[in-house]
Amino acid sequence: MKTDLSPRMKVALYGLMCVLLIPFVFPTWWMLTSSVKPISDIFAFPPDLWPRRFDFSTYARVFELQPFARQYWNSAYIAALVTGGTMIISSMAGYAFARIKFPFSNAIFMVVLLGLLIPSEVTIVPLFQMFLKWGMINTHWPLILVPIFGAPSVFATFVMRQFFIALPVELEEAARVDGLGRFKIFWLIALPLAKPALGAVAIFTFLHSWNLYLEPIVFLSSTQMFTLPQALTQFTDAYGGAMWNIQLAAATMTAIPVLLVFIVAQKQFVEGLAHTGLKG
């Protein structure tokens, strides 16, 4: 409904959006500022929107209390593997379902789509037993294998399929006449043109892996192996009370890098998501 708005209307809309922004922006601000407050100022009244005293030692304490660098690395490399693996597997499957004629392709696609109805929360008990049997408990294998092959990758396959269906088929026919086989057509023609969809898949998959919480607490037991979400909840004192400022320092370090990447690349980010097959 892009009609020109009256100045009064504009002011009203800006005002409304600013009020609505508070719960979206304030928590991040509060996390940042509280992470550098000494513990005594954390619950000060009235609340300080800007710290009255700074205490940067909280950031050092994060690394003393936990093998935080190691945990950071765990989360990062797992997310990278899951993202890369999902992009490969689901772009190949999505391409085949969209473009290649083979017997039972529709039936198989339906079976694969079933995966969307079976999130790993449903299968967590047998998954635990399977990985126990394979000696993979307290390793990162479950956190890598389950998302690459489970429901998140099915979603990715669906997004890729929708994209490839919309790609002009003549491009691939031209490539066939030009002498390419299926794999080269996929690799040199279809995939380079699928960058927006691949971008969306990468974002969804990365965030999924980065946010995993149930799986790590089920599959991992030693702090060396922990991922970030799990580690963040471990900053407690001897009595089980939360060490808020240190926990918030760790949370800040977890959140800010991804947030910065997002702000730098927000255009591609948002447009990539908007162009997934979700429009129906």
């Binding site: 002009p168 003549e170 491009l171 026919e173 031209a174 490539a175 066939r176 006449v177 030009d178 002498g179 390419l180 086989g181 023609i189």
Partner: peptide
């Protein structure tokens, strides 16, 4: 396969990469 037929084709919507 098309590639083994020694033909070249011009498509309606050009199909340029």
């Amino acid at each position: 396969e098309p590639k083994d037929r020694d033909i070249a084709m011009v498509f309606q919507n050009y199909a340029l990469y």
